[in-house]
Amino acid sequence: MKKVGHAYHKGVGPKVGMQTQRYKDKLKYAKKLSTSRSTSWTFGGSASVSWGIGKIEAKTDYNVTKKTTTGYTVTATLTIPKKSYGAIQPKARYQKFSIKRYISDEACHTRVLKNYGTMGAIVDPVDFRTCVSRRHCSP
């Protein structure tokens, strides 16, 4: 089992943005999470999702979330400099993992015995993504 690529994000709540003028200001976020996200196989998937999560947690320091929860309020604050635009959005942070079973022969050559697939695992169910720019931006 190995980590594949960089983390990626999917929104779990609405984006909120604000334009400042002459003074810096604080954008306060307090919204209910509205979108549910799930850990799932992105390629293959010849085993249950729970089995894949168990393999990831046993071999890494990640705590994987099977499914995000909706309906509760999350809060955050972003300071935006004068004459700038700022935005904030809660997102689930995913990491992909390739899960394979290997076997070694007498000559110590290793080969793949079974490729279970690639899992997109939620490693942080609420990760506030922000952006600050002179123009509109997307977190």
Rank of each mutant, 00 (worst) to 15 (best):
G13D: 02
G13R: 10
P14V: 11
K15M: 05
K15Q: 09
K15T: 07
G17V: 00
M18S: 04
Q19H: 09
T20Y: 00
Q21M: 07
Q21D: 15
R22F: 10
Y23K: 01
Y23D: 14
Y23M: 06
Y23I: 08
D25N: 10
D25Y: 01
K28G: 04
Y29G: 00
Y29E: 07
Y29P: 00
A30F: 13
K31T: 05
L33R: 12
L33I: 10
S34N: 14
S36Y: 01
S36G: 15
T39P: 01
T39W: 00
S40I: 02
S40T: 09
S40V: 08
W41A: 11
F43K: 15
G44S: 08
G44D: 03
S46M: 02
S46R: 15
A47W: 00
S48M: 08
S48N: 10
V49C: 11
W51S: 06
W51Y: 13
W51D: 05
W51C: 05
G52L: 00
I53N: 03
I53W: 01
I53Q: 04
I53A: 08
G54P: 01
I56E: 11
I56S: 10
I56K: 10
I56H: 02
K59H: 02
T60V: 02
T60P: 04
T60G: 05
D61H: 08
D61G: 13
N63R: 12
V64C: 13
T65F: 02
T65K: 07
K67W: 00
T68C: 06
T68Q: 06
T68G: 09
T68S: 07
T69N: 07
T70L: 03
T70N: 06
Y72N: 09
Y72M: 07
T73M: 11
A76R: 10
A76F: 15
I80L: 09
P81W: 02
K82E: 14
K82I: 07
K82T: 12
K83I: 03
K83V: 07
K83N: 14
S84A: 10
S84P: 00
G86N: 14
G86C: 12
A87H: 05
I88E: 09
Q89P: 04
P90F: 10
P90N: 10
P90Y: 14
K91R: 09
R93K: 15
R93L: 11
R93V: 06
Y94C: 09
Y94Q: 13
Q95N: 12
K96D: 15
K96V: 05
K96R: 15
K96E: 14
F97T: 02
F97C: 06
S98Q: 15
S98V: 02
S98I: 04
I99N: 13
I99A: 12
I103K: 15
I103E: 15
D105W: 14
E106Y: 13
E106I: 07
C108V: 08
H109P: 10
H109Y: 13
R111W: 11
V112N: 10
L113H: 12
L113C: 12
N115M: 03
N115E: 14
G117E: 09
G117V: 12
G117L: 01
T118D: 14
T118F: 03
M119C: 07
M119F: 03
M119S: 13
G120R: 14
G120H: 08
G120P: 01
A121F: 00
